[in-house]
């Protein structure tokens, strides 16, 4: 986040959201507490507003260290709000993924976050705000099969794990021998599922170019300060 966006420009929002153990799932409450203590975060996603070369963007960043970056009700709500803010405020959305998938401990509620977040992407499309998604290591399963894969532009960090079925689930489903580069950023790039592989140090300039071009139509109308910067 510090490397990517303008220094000091990030303003965190949605900080009031807290996960709850609705299903009374074995050890979930304990895992949540432990993750909060370890990461000093309240869930796997931090969301808010930031700037890229002075251009405002709606952002969300996942942290794998909070329960594997998994998406439960709170993560889904934060992603949805990030995309909704982009649509409402007519600013681009940028989401950094790092997730093992949906959070099993919230069961069917987690599955529905796939629908909720995908609906929010549709909202962005209808009003014409660009949404850029960055796959970091790993971007998997329920996250990959929802809002992550339907961004206007997708870039991945080199060698990130990117795939639908995690190794243990795939084994359980009887998936046999796989190619050496299976489920890597390079594999999905080769198969046309993402636009580019971009190392972290080049991410800021790549994102800035994308926001200036795809989001150009938004910034021309919101004031001379931004216009000045786009030149």
């Amino acid at each position: 986040m510090r490397w990517t966006f303008d220094e000091g420009s990030f303003e965190e929002l949605d900080t009031e959201l807290r996960s709850i153990d609705t299903l009374v799932f074995p050890e979930y409450a304990e895992k949540l507490t432990a993750a909060e203590e370890k990461t000093r975060m309240h869930d796997s996603i931090v969301s808010g507003r930031a700037k890229l070369d002075d251009m405002p963007v709606s952002v969300a960043v996942a942290d794998f260290s909070f329960m594997g970056g998994s998406m439960g009700s709170v993560a889904g709500e934060k992603i949805t709000r990030t995309l909704e803010r982009a649509a409402q405020q007519r600013i681009p959305a940028i989401i950094f993924c790092a997730s093992g998938g949906a959070r099993m401990q919230e069961g069917i509620l987690s599955l529905m976050q796939m629908a909720k977040t995908s609906a929010a992407v549709q909202l962005c499309r209808e009003v014409g705000v660009p949404y850029i998604c960055i796959f970091t290591d790993p971007t998997m399963a329920g996250v990959l099969a929802s809002y992550a894969s339907i961004a206007d532009v997708i870039v991945a960090e080199p060698k990130s794990l990117v795939g639908f079925a995690g190794a243990r689930v795939a084994k359980q489903a009887g998936v046999g021998k796989v190619p050496d580069d299976f489920q890597t950023a390079e594999f999905v790039f080769k198969h046309g599922m993402i636009d580019a592989i971009v190392p972290r140090k080049e991410m800021r300039s790549t994102l800035t170019s994308l926001v200036k071009t795809l989001g150009g139509h938004l910034f021309l109308s919101i004031g001379s300060v931004v216009k000045e910067n786009i030149k």
């Binding site: 995908s118 549709q122 209808e126 399963a141 099969a145 809002y147 299976f182 489920q183 999905v188 599922m193």
Partner: peptide, 23 residues
């Protein structure tokens, strides 16, 4: 979940289908 499905983008296909339903 197999290799063929991953190669052809099973995740994108599911996500795009969900999104289409909202349109």
């Amino acid at each position: 979940p197999g290799v063929e499905s991953e190669s052809r983008g099973i995740s994108e296909a599911i996500a795009a289908s969900i999104m289409k339903m909202f349109a």
